[in-house]
Amino acid sequence: MTASESFINEPMKAADIPTATHLTFDRLDERHTRVLLTEWLIVWLIPTVAWTVLYGFGAIKSSLLSGFWPHLLPLALLVPILVLAPLYARHCGFAVRDHDIHYKNGILWRKQVALPFNRIQHVETEQNPFERLHGLATLKFFTAGGGSADMKIPALATHQANDLKALVLEKAGEAADERA
């Protein structure tokens, strides 16, 4: 077999293939920042309380630490939390096309997942306590590819999550019908 025989490259069709490079992504719900802040602050709070108590009772001693100012040390970590949460939320987004759904996240390390509707096995809606507090939900999409969810879209308003789920399932159903 020669190279020219096996090389199939239909230029007309290839040019028609839509690219997912310049998609316009929908932002997640604006309450996403608040959920992130709540979650991250709780993670921050646990060692902070431990630090304050231990230092307050004199359990932590070092020649570098003296007086009241070490109590303020955990506050330094608050700055990146307060800056990063809104920034991270701004970098998350999803896009729905006719035949697939895309999700992107990451401030520096950016990730973009693409999932064709006709590969979706099932969809799950999930609400952790913080999301429930803010009336948000996470949509999880499963394919036959991995063990855990292949795509997770967090921080969707509950009604938006339900609408999107219905839309995706409808599209997935259409895709299945087409094939059959």
Partner: peptide, 11 residues
């Protein structure tokens, strides 16, 4: 036959 595609970029 592909299920999902993920494109990642570091800075």
């Amino acid at each position: 036959k592909v299920q999902t595609v993920i494109l990642k970029q570091s800075p």
